[in-house]
Amino acid sequence: MALTLFSDPPETLVAELLAGVRAHNAAHLGAETSRPLAVEVRDAQGRLLGGLSGRTIYRQFLIDLLWVAEDARGQGLGRQLMAAAEAEARQRGCVAAQLDTLDFQAPHFYAKLGFETVGRVSGIPANPERFFLLKRYA
């Protein structure tokens, strides 16, 4: 047996690990139907004002990131991005959305959109509190 540590893992290793996880998941959940889902908003000059990226898998919408440019905040763009992405997730058959956020980012924003805190990580020195959020679709 040989244990190797990588700071920059080879793509082949990551692909092999992913294949192993997918095979294990398929044995428990059936065939994977993971699909990327992203939405963006740009101004008239083509500058990115914000966007959202995630994926739908096993009837859930997993949100990886949401960002709105500093000068475009407070105009409802985040809410519009979320609404568009969640509408598509529901079209794909999702019954819930999940994400995590830090205390200085947007836990209150997501709460206004109907997300509930289902977990927290706090008390780690020099680290912000992390919230794990879930929104069930009716």
Rank of each mutant, 00 (worst) to 15 (best):
I63A: 03
A89K: 06
R136Y: 04
Q105M: 10
S7L: 14
A27L: 07
G76E: 02
F104V: 09
H108K: 11
R130I: 10
L81N: 03
R35L: 04
A96I: 02
E40A: 13
R47F: 03
W67I: 01
R79F: 04
E40K: 14
G30H: 05
E116K: 15
A138V: 11
D64V: 01
V41A: 13
L77E: 11
R55S: 15
E70D: 15
T33A: 13
R59S: 14
D8M: 09
T101P: 11
A44Q: 12
Y58K: 03
R120Y: 06
K135Q: 11
D71R: 06
F104H: 08
A84V: 04
A84R: 15
Y110G: 02
A27H: 05
G51E: 04
L62Q: 12
M1I: 09
V95T: 12
A87P: 00
L99N: 04
S7Y: 10
A97E: 02
A87G: 03
F109A: 08
H24E: 12
D8H: 14
A44H: 12
G20D: 11
T33Y: 02
A138H: 13
G78W: 11
I63E: 00
V14Y: 08
S53E: 06
A84C: 00
E129N: 05
F104R: 06
V95C: 09
F109Y: 05
T33W: 00
A87Q: 07
Q91T: 05
C94G: 04
P125H: 02
R130T: 14
V95G: 10
F109S: 07
V118G: 02
Q105A: 03
L18G: 02
A38N: 14
R92N: 06
E16S: 14
V41L: 11
F132T: 00
G54P: 02
E11L: 15
A106F: 10
P36F: 05
F132K: 01
G20I: 10
D8I: 10
G78A: 09
Q105E: 14
F109M: 13
R47A: 14
E11A: 15
L81Y: 00
S53Y: 12
K135R: 14
E86G: 09
A89H: 03
G20W: 00
P128I: 02
G20H: 00
L133S: 08
H24L: 13
V121C: 08
A89R: 01
G123E: 01
L133V: 01
E70I: 02
V14F: 12
I63V: 06
E129K: 07
A26E: 15
A31M: 14
T117H: 01
E11Y: 08
L29T: 01
A2D: 08
D103F: 01
E88S: 06
L99S: 06
R42T: 11
F115T: 12
